[in-house]
Design a protein around this nucleic acid. Structure first.
Lengths: 342, 342
DNA sequence: ATGAAAGCGCTAACAA
DNA sequence: TTGTTAGCGCTTTCAT
């Protein structure tokens, strides 16, 4: 351990004393306040450097009742879509030196209920949650929380506070329309039944609704199990779908990962995609661009969600903010047609 | 905005007053101290609930000089390997109510240099960094930082503090040995030249060293560009490798993602894997298990790294800790043989 | 089992 | 341009 670590903590008053000014001057020098003589500031900063001073944000936070961090609650980080959102959010926030306090629920509302109070104790300036499914207690807690709540990645009927999301229900309709336009009529859906993945459920519901509206059968639904589901489940799911409904001519998958699993399984079984079977994914993951054939999918704007959320946070934290009502940003997903569908 | 939000903040003294005890008793009741009459505690807790009290961790932190969070610095979250580590770490830490302060450098040491001081100001109890490549200033800063520094995912020659990692250099030798044993002699390597990915560089260096030791040629090296590189680069890289070195009979890729790109490209070009060309990846990503043929790879124990790091943190924070010297955990990666190699 | 006083390190507010 | 005072909300310490 270096000697520096043994020394008692250096604080503002130490620098003040060493330079021969008051603590306030040191404070001002540090935050780049106007009204500090350049020479004084220089002296302060150099002495701080010399003494190995580290500004104590905790103390400042207590005094100012502002912490400069945002709590972010995610169901999983091992989902490239969510990571993209977190990356965009993190990048934008870090530009203004706002830090992220991260919590991972692993798709578990109980865990979320346990984690959120821990986060709130730290006085985050806002709390961002991927997903809109929460326990009753969590909901109540967030409702009366003294910080802005931002739910993202979905458009809840009853939002707790602000929303930055898209309609998973509507987004799937882009895919259904595309498949039907190209002549497919016997469509199936892989996944979307998991109780812990409401976004997937919305997608499946959108699928069913779209078919119903077209007076097409919507019974070719194959469950894949509890979220997260991925490529492995997609491959197994394809087999199940075809054994139950051999005449299927098009499949929409709850995600590109599942879609890739299905495409890969088709390759193994010698099923021609898209000729015999059209397959579409969801989410525009890298795998869908690279696999063979490349997957038709929906780009949900994962980064855009993060970006917009950051902007919303800045807005909410802006000094002059008058706390208007809750805001709602509706992101519009894009259909991306690739070779896996005709 | 609910009425609760307009009220001034409820603090311990408010509860104390309402219950008719002192703030100290409230404090004790909250932390489950022995030496509070059960009836008193019950009264305190119920009044707290009633008033919507939220414990202020900032104030407690200032007083106790302990914050209960750990800073985690990652090059990227969109890498399933890193996310797995963060997940395991996060899960273990959250069990003891330690929060994660997340920073994402995007493989940029300059950005890291900018972010770390921001993190240190918040008095994290430890700082965990994926990677061991840092700027000179960052290194100096961390060296004299008053918190334990844990570098993970590599085994640096000169560690700043503690280490939980594996030798990327050695790990590749498992793959080389496997390919050579199965008769391949004209091996190539995809990726690993990127200056911002020292782990990749180590892998490539290990590849070159292993071949040199076997007196085999080690010139079939194809750069893929700046990290992060993925499937797309893998596909392009395969083409480049084969046009430069058409006689190549085995390829090791800097990651499974690149490996998948290469395998997919082989499928498109009608190159038989593994008969004509053996392909191995690195990192044991899900894609490598599911693709066709499944990829031979190295499992580096991403979760284990996170888990071990959490244990190390607990150790370092244990009250009786005597601050012994830096610890070093050497994780041993495993070879996983699949169908992409003979 | 409970309370009173002091103070963690910083900054808002006012003063000079 | 700089300084003084007070206090953010909690917990340590000592007292009862």
């Amino acid at each position: 351990m270096s000697p520096a670590k043994r020394h008692a903590k250096v604080k503002m008053t130490d620098i003040a004393q060493a330079v021969g000014v008051s603590a306030m001057t040191v404070s001002r020098a540090f935050k780049g306040d106007t009204g500090v003589k350049p020479a004084t500031r220089a002296a302060v900063l150099s002495k701080a450097e010399e003494l190995g001073y580290v500004f104590d944000a905790t103390a400042a936070n207590l005094r100012q009742s502002r912490t400069g961090f945002v709590a972010v609650v995610v169901p999983s980080l091992e989902n490239a879509n969510f990571s993209a959102t977190v990356r965009a959010l993190s990048k934008a926030l870090s530009q203004k030196n706002i830090q992220i306090l991260l919590a991972n629920t692993e798709y578990d509302v109980e865990e979320e209920e346990r984690l959120i109070p821990q986060l709130l104790r730290r006085n985050p300036e806002a709390i961002v949650l991927i997903g809109t499914q929460h326990s009753k207690r969590t909901r109540a807690l967030l409702k009366k929380a003294p910080v802005p709540v931002i739910e993202i990645w979905d458009l809840p009927r009853e939002a707790i506070g602000h929303v930055v999301g898209f309609s998973n229900f509507d987004a799937v309709q882009l895919l259904v329309a595309h498949l039907v336009k190209s002549g497919r009529r016997r469509l199936g859906f892989l996944g979307g039944e998991a109780g812990n993945d409401p976004r997937g459920q919305q997608r499946r519901a959108g699928f069913v609704a779209a078919l119903a509206q077209l007076a097409l059968p919507a019974h070719r639904l194959v469950p894949l199990g509890t979220a997260p589901v991925g490529m492995t489940e997609g491959a197994a799911g394809l087999d199940r779908l075809l054994s139950q409904f051999p005449d299927t001519d098009g499949i929409i998958c709850v995600s590109d990962l599942v879609g890739f699993g299905a495409v890969a399984q088709c390759a193994r079984r010698g099923i021609a995609v898209p000729e015999t079977l059209a397959i579409a994914g969801f989410g525009n993951y890298e795998i869908g661009r690279v696999c063979e054939p490349a997957l038709t999918t929906v780009d949900v704007g994962a980064e855009q969600i993060g970006q917009r959320t950051a902007e919303l946070v800045f807005d909410l934290l802006a000094p002059g903010n008058t706390r208007q009502g809750p805001r709602r940003f509706d992101i519009h997903p894009d259909l991306i047609v690739r070779r896996s569908t005709p």
